[in-house]
Amino acid sequence: MIAFRFEPGPCLLSVPVTLWGPRRSPSDLVFVLDTGTERTIVDLEIASRLGFSERDSTRRSRVVSALGAEEGFLVTAPRILALGWDRDGFPIADHRLGANARIDGLIGADFFAGLRLVIDYGAGVVEVSESSESPSQAPP
């Protein structure tokens, strides 16, 4: 199990992320942990600097927020590392994120597939470990 501390209380959880791109050495970004979205998202401008291009996209992507819908595209990141866990060949949606958000991406629920994520807002701790249940063990 890997644990990270944050300031206790209701807050946005910013997460250091290292992202590998096709054209550049792995670079360090700050994402928000947002399990409310099923897909991990990186800002379009940052994605292009890492060498991701719409030409390499596997398909279009569309996000829906309280403020409307936004078009983007899906690419495969060679590797992404966050909260002590890494994923190889990981699909990431590239979208334009507003500058006012002060972040460059979101870690979505897909990053935690097969993992156990515990967010303790009272103690200010995020814990990530392997899930004791694999999908094949889950009830139908």
Binding site: L12, D34, S65, L67, L106
Partner: peptide, 12 residues
């Protein structure tokens, strides 16, 4: 840090 008024993505 992130803008506390930031609203996450609702669905993709």
């Amino acid at each position: 840090g992130p803008n506390p008024d930031f609203c996450g993505i609702l669905s993709l």
